[in-house]
């Protein structure tokens, strides 16, 4: 664990009056005046309809783009943009993309190994054993030698998770991890996230801070028993709720729709 521990009370993620722009259209603002604090050990669910700006907010939190205005601190360090000086803080944060976003020319094992080869001065054997362990816990060992195009979306998402865990992050941001998964894989993800949040995982022995985005709050078995913190992104505003009861009392139409109607395609 690095020196910048979160047990000192410094929030993991701290946003003040932040405006978020769209990653694929930097001139478009998708959320304004965001105040959001994530503390170590939190398990956040960030809910919102499709195209509400959840992914953009998560990418901003990951340091992939800078806020249009306001201040953003990661582990207490200001994160103005993709700056080399902030690399140490950024590497303590893992990102799992919606579609896995694997490198199409590399095998699944090479995808997982890439961040280790780039950032760690480890021997080949050490990297291989670490990659094998990650592939084993994610059930990807039989597919290790295949490129992403030769495995299904379910397995691609798992490979994205294994890759994000390679550098042993303190915080894991997961962009819609359950979208498009079948029931078996959904069950596996939920159990795996429980173990990550509880620090009972083979790949890391510390409890991870988790931030998960979703467009589906209608199924009670998914997040209610897991996430202790919840926020909704609707109409360009982030609303933080104290608990699930307060969320259910909310009269906002967008929030009610998230609670009652399953997203299209699920």
């Amino acid at each position: 664990m690095s020196d910048l521990t979160t047990s000192s009370g410094v929030p993991v993620i701290e946003m003040r009056a932040v405006n978020v722009c769209a990653l694929k259209s930097p001139g478009t603002t998708v959320a304004v005046n965001l105040d959001w604090t994530v503390n170590a050990g939190d398990f956040w669910v960030l809910a919102g309809a499709q195209r509400a700006g959840k992914s953009d907010l998560l990418m901003l939190a990951a340091g992939l783009m800078s806020p249009r205005c306001g201040t953003y601190r990661l582990f207490g360090e200001s994160m103005p943009d993709f700056a080399e000086e902030n690399l140490a803080e950024r590497l303590r944060l893992g990102f799992v993309f919606d579609g896995g976003q694997l490198f199409s020319r590399l095998t699944l094992a090479e995808n997982v190994a890439l961040p280790l080869k780039y950032h760690r001065d480890w021997s080949r054997e050490t990297i291989e054993s670490r990659v094998t362990a990650l592939l084993e816990v994610t059930g990807l060992l039989p597919y290790a030698h295949l490129t992403p195009g030769n495995v299904g979306r379910n397995w691609q998402k798992r490979a994205g998770l294994a890759r994000a865990l390679a550098l042993e992050p303190d915080v894991l941001l997961l962009d819609n991890p359950l979208a498009g998964l079948d029931a078996r894989h959904t069950h596996w993800w939920l159990r795996f996230l429980d173990r990550l949040a509880g620090g009972q995982h083979a790949s890391t022995d510390k409890p991870l801070t988790l931030v998960v985005t979703t467009d589906d709050l209608s199924r009670p078995g998914l997040w209610r028993s897991r996430a202790k913190q919840i926020a909704c992104l609707a109409g360009g505003r982030l609303t933080v709720f104290r608990d699930w009861a307060e969320l259910e009392m909310c009269h906002n139409a967008a929030v009610q729709e998230l609670l009652t109607a399953p997203p299209a395609g699920n």
Partner: peptide, 17 residues
């Protein structure tokens, strides 16, 4: 261009590469 459009560049940045 394909890597950019499919989000592989963002994946690299997310990994600190």
């Amino acid at each position: 261009g394909t890597a950019r459009a499919l989000g592989e560049v963002e994946a690299l940045e997310a990994l600190g590469i």
